[in-house]
Computed example of a mutant assay.
Amino acid sequence: MKSKVNKLTESVSDIDRVSRAVSLSIKTHRKQQKLSLDELSRRAGVSKGMLVEIEKGSANPSIAILCKVAAALGLSVAEIVNISDDPPAYRIDPAAMPVLWQGEKGGTARLLAGTRGPDMIELWRWEMHPGESFASAGHPQRTWELLHVEQGELTLTIAEQSLQVPQGSAAVARTAAPHGYANRTSQLLVFTMTVAEMHSH
């Protein structure tokens, strides 16, 4: 059941659009870097079978898998889903903001904007219905998340620590360790999140 929760889903057109963008992007960057599927699989810690399915456009990878493949290619998730560009300033329209997680009760995580990486910054907007949760195995060492709760109350868990973040409050978290977000209330939870992953020293 859990595998269904983390999929790239929304409307069929959104699934198709994101799958096509991810498929083409990963294949193109892998070939540019002269990496075999076996080598990318080893670097990313993702099975070769999954990579084949992704490149064919027939798999909807989870956020965790996208993060691993992006990191192995030295890219940001935004670059892989094609919402990143090079000019000093550019606009991203709502239709180009992919939903990369959907909860079992209709919650969503939408990637609003992101920089080109390996040093990447992403802006997300999450909506979680009562009882929904999301777990991450953790990011690279130098990763920070800044969260601001617009509505409801977020339960943020990192390793052994659990933090309640009520409406109007913000939180700063180092998210190399396993972590998760949950809505343990009876109200809708809405929060924005910035993820900064720094690789250079």
Results as ranks from 00 to 15, higher is better:
Pro94Glu: 08
Ala78Pro: 07
Asp85Arg: 12
Leu111Gln: 11
Glu132Trp: 07
Ala96Gly: 06
Gly117Leu: 02
Ser133Pro: 01
Ala78Cys: 00
Glu127Phe: 08
Glu104Ala: 11
Ala89Tyr: 14
Thr108His: 08
Arg110Asp: 02
Gly117Ile: 06
Ile92Met: 09
Gly138Asn: 02
Ser76Trp: 05
Ala95Phe: 10
Thr115Val: 06
Ala72Thr: 11
Ala72Lys: 02
Pro94Leu: 03
Thr115Asn: 08
Trp101Arg: 10
Gly74Leu: 07
Leu75Arg: 03
Trp101Met: 14
Val149Tyr: 06
Ala78Trp: 06
Ala96Thr: 04
His148Gln: 09
Pro130Lys: 11
Val77Ile: 15
Arg142Asn: 15
Asp85Gln: 15
Trp126Gly: 11
Asn82Ile: 01
Glu127Pro: 00
Val77Asp: 03
Leu100Asn: 12
Ser136Met: 10
Leu123Tyr: 13
Leu100Pro: 07
Thr115Phe: 02
Gly138Met: 04
Leu75Ile: 00
Gly107Pro: 03
Leu111Cys: 09
Glu104Gln: 11
Ser133Tyr: 07
Glu127Gly: 07
Pro94Trp: 05
Trp101Asp: 08
Trp126Asn: 14
Glu145His: 12
Asp86Trp: 01
Ala95Trp: 08
Glu132Lys: 06
Arg110Tyr: 04
Val99His: 07
Asp85Tyr: 08
Pro87Ala: 09
Phe134Asn: 02
Ala78Val: 02
Lys68Cys: 10
Trp126Val: 14
Pro88Lys: 08
Ser76Pro: 01
Thr143Trp: 06
Phe134Glu: 04
Trp101His: 15
Phe134Val: 14
Pro98Tyr: 00
Ser136Arg: 03
Pro118Thr: 11
Pro88Thr: 00
Asn82Met: 02
Arg125Ser: 11
Ala71Ser: 15
Arg142Thr: 12
Asp86Thr: 14
Glu145Ala: 13
Met120Lys: 10
Lys105Ala: 15
Val99Glu: 01
Gly138Pro: 07
Gln102Glu: 02
Gly138Phe: 00
Pro88His: 09
Leu112Ser: 07
Glu104Asn: 12
Leu100Lys: 12
Leu147Asp: 14
Thr115Arg: 01
Arg142Gly: 00
Val99Pro: 05
Pro98Thr: 01
Asp119Ala: 13
Gly138Glu: 04
Arg91Ile: 13
Ala137Leu: 14
Leu75Gly: 02
Trp126Glu: 13
Pro88Glu: 05
Lys105Val: 03
Thr143Arg: 01
Ala109Trp: 04
Pro118Ser: 09
Gly114Phe: 12
Thr143Gly: 03
Pro88Trp: 04
Ala71Asp: 15
Glu145Ser: 15
Met128Cys: 08
Trp124Ile: 09
Met97Ser: 03
Pro140Gly: 13
Leu75Tyr: 06
Trp124Val: 10
Ser136Ala: 10
Ala137Ile: 09
Asp93Met: 05
Gly74Gln: 05
Pro118Tyr: 02
Ile92Val: 15
Val77Met: 15
Ala96His: 13
Ala109Leu: 14
Ala109Lys: 06
Glu145Arg: 05
Pro140His: 15
Leu75Asp: 04
Glu132Met: 00
